[in-house]
Amino acid sequence: MTEQPQNWQVFKDTGVPNADWQLPAPPSWRPFGDSVAPGVDRRKQRADTFQMLPAQVDMINAAIYLRRPLLITGKPGTGKSSLAYKVAKELMLGEVLYWSITTRTTLKNGLYRYDAIGRLQETEQLTKLSQGQLNQQEVLKTVQKPESIGKYITLGPLGTALLPSDKPRILLIDEIDKSDIDLPNDLLSIFEEGWFEIPELDRIKEIAPNVRVRTAYSDPDEPSTWNDNGYYTVPNGRISCRAFPLVILTSNGERDFPPAFLRRCLRLRMPQPDKAMLGRIVAAHLDAEYDQLANEYGEVVAQERKKAATDIRDELIQTFLERRQEGDLATDQLLNAIFMVTRDRSPVGSSRKRLIKSLLKNLTSAEDLEDETDEGDESEQDELA
Score class of each variant (00 low, 15 high):
1 M>E: 00
9 Q>S: 11
14 T>E: 00
18 N>C: 12
26 P>I: 00
28 S>L: 07
30 R>T: 03
30 R>S: 10
32 F>T: 08
33 G>K: 09
33 G>H: 03
36 V>S: 05
40 V>C: 01
43 R>I: 03
43 R>E: 00
49 T>N: 07
49 T>Y: 14
55 A>F: 07
58 D>P: 05
60 I>M: 05
61 N>G: 10
62 A>M: 06
63 A>N: 03
67 R>W: 04
70 L>H: 06
72 I>L: 08
73 T>I: 01
76 P>W: 10
81 S>G: 08
84 A>R: 00
85 Y>T: 02
87 V>E: 00
90 E>Y: 03
92 M>W: 03
92 M>C: 06
94 G>Q: 10
98 Y>R: 13
106 T>K: 13
107 L>R: 15
109 N>L: 12
111 L>T: 02
113 R>C: 04
115 D>E: 10
116 A>S: 15
121 Q>M: 13
124 E>Q: 08
124 E>G: 04
125 Q>C: 09
137 Q>E: 14
139 V>W: 03
139 V>Q: 12
140 L>W: 11
141 K>A: 13
142 T>S: 10
146 P>I: 07
150 G>S: 05
152 Y>S: 01
152 Y>G: 01
156 G>Q: 09
158 L>W: 12
161 A>F: 07
163 L>R: 15
163 L>D: 09
167 K>C: 04
169 R>D: 03
169 R>E: 01
173 I>L: 04
175 E>V: 00
176 I>N: 00
180 D>L: 01
183 L>E: 02
183 L>A: 13
187 L>Q: 10
192 E>G: 05
194 G>C: 04
201 L>I: 02
201 L>V: 02
201 L>Y: 04
206 E>D: 15
211 V>N: 04
211 V>I: 14
214 R>Q: 15
217 Y>H: 14
231 Y>A: 03
232 Y>A: 12
237 G>F: 01
237 G>S: 08
247 V>F: 06
250 T>P: 04
252 N>L: 03
257 F>L: 05
262 L>I: 08
262 L>P: 05
263 R>A: 09
267 R>V: 01
268 L>N: 04
271 P>Y: 09
272 Q>H: 05
273 P>A: 06
274 D>A: 01
277 M>C: 11
278 L>T: 07
280 R>Q: 11
284 A>F: 01
286 L>C: 05
288 A>C: 04
297 Y>C: 11
297 Y>Q: 13
298 G>I: 06
299 E>L: 14
303 Q>S: 11
307 K>Y: 07
319 T>S: 14
319 T>M: 11
322 E>I: 14
323 R>Y: 00
327 G>H: 10
331 T>W: 06
333 Q>A: 13
334 L>W: 12
343 R>E: 13
344 D>G: 12
358 S>I: 08
360 L>S: 13
372 E>I: 15
372 E>C: 11
377 D>R: 12
379 S>R: 15
380 E>S: 12
381 Q>S: 10
384 L>D: 06
385 A>C: 06
